[in-house]
Design a binder for these strands. Sequence first.
DNA 1: TAAATAGTGTCTATGAGACAATATCTC
DNA 2: GAGATATTGTCTCATAGACACTATTTA
Lengths: 228, 228
Amino acid sequence: MTAVAVDVALLAIEAGRLTVLLVEPESADLAGTWSLPGRRVRDDESLDTTALRALRELAGIERPTLLLEQLRTYGAPTRDPRARVVSVAYLALSGAPLHPAPGPRPGPRAVVADAAEVLDWPPARFAYDHAAIVADAIERVRSRLEYTALATALLPAPFTLAALRGVYEAVWGGPLDPANFRRKVLATPGFVVPAPGPAVAGPGGGRPARRYAAGGATRLHPAMLRDR
Amino acid sequence: MTAVAVDVALLAIEAGRLTVLLVEPESADLAGTWSLPGRRVRDDESLDTTALRALRELAGIERPTLLLEQLRTYGAPTRDPRARVVSVAYLALSGAPLHPAPGPRPGPRAVVADAAEVLDWPPARFAYDHAAIVADAIERVRSRLEYTALATALLPAPFTLAALRGVYEAVWGGPLDPANFRRKVLATPGFVVPAPGPAVAGPGGGRPARRYAAGGATRLHPAMLRDR
DNA sequence: TAAATAGTGTCTATGAGACAATATCTC
DNA sequence: GAGATATTGTCTCATAGACACTATTTA
């Protein structure tokens, strides 16, 4: 009988790097691999609810995410060798750095891995087809940064444009020109608004930076396009 | 027990309009509504295979589509009032006009509806949540035309740029400037290549148009962006 | 000939990127 | 003052859209 599950790729930004939460599979014959937190869908549960429950039960995250959206559904007949499981993959994004603490009850071990490194892992280091799900999730969040104001939600207000640029650099994995980044952000209506209060310099000196808060916009026009 | 199904939105271009295939639901208590062709996923079947089978069994389409891709998965607990069914929605695109002929065996009635009109229908005219799936599918094919060379696959080669423009106008639902369209297409490497043979005028006269065939490209750089 | 359609030329606006120059902080 | 970072200015290039204009057919 075909079962339905939800697997969640939970991403966050930590120390200027994009990270992903991985857990040990519960099945003993998958020891040595890593997987995403996942749960079977209960009969009275929506798919989103299952995703939140997986994060709560397996990652100890209570009210997690700035973003929770479906990626796609994986249904190859043999993706789980033990039984037929169709899995709906989700992307979740946390506003705070992740702690590999699996909740109150003793649970499987969890790690927080660097997203760029994980993309280079051989697929066999993951359980099931979770290598593909992780790659999907990373690509999706990179794309979301282009077209939405999601990055402002990842920062505590007020923030500097350098901090906002740091989010883009962490997710996209490369440096951006500060001058051009600034001009693009300020030219996009509703992306950021100036915050009151004085400008503050960073720890290493330099001219103090003005502070901004999230503007009202959700979709960005024009978009913050990556180089192709 | 939760069941898994696949529903397919099959689109085509007919007489300059984007169309979608709808069938009568098999369940008697849904009489008076329209639905998308859908089937339960068999235990040994991939999701793509189920989608193709649904088209074959309910729409009489044997080797259908230029495009078959997943849209998203619908799993609200009460989306089917009779039982819990999680449905993986697919978009399919046919290169030939659709015929509302439900295959060799007697099956439910089918219609070919205009996509733009269907978007204005009240959701209750559809069974289940299929109004949302249809809207998803139309938006997806509009987007695919921006970033891929899909439109050339919809036309028999050789074709004129006016015919190619007709595909874009049908899917996007508005007129495009012939001069600017031409320049954009020819400036996109690999989109089209000149076809041998003479230029031919249309039925209503006018300067004969040169003919082109599909270039090798799949992804378009730069993309054919819609007005926002 | 008129109408229709194909194709070319040109002008303007916008956005992205490179990079120089200036401002103001920490050490 | 030296170094670091923020901010502004300027230049170039690519693309999109509006629209005038020319070319070649059918009726």
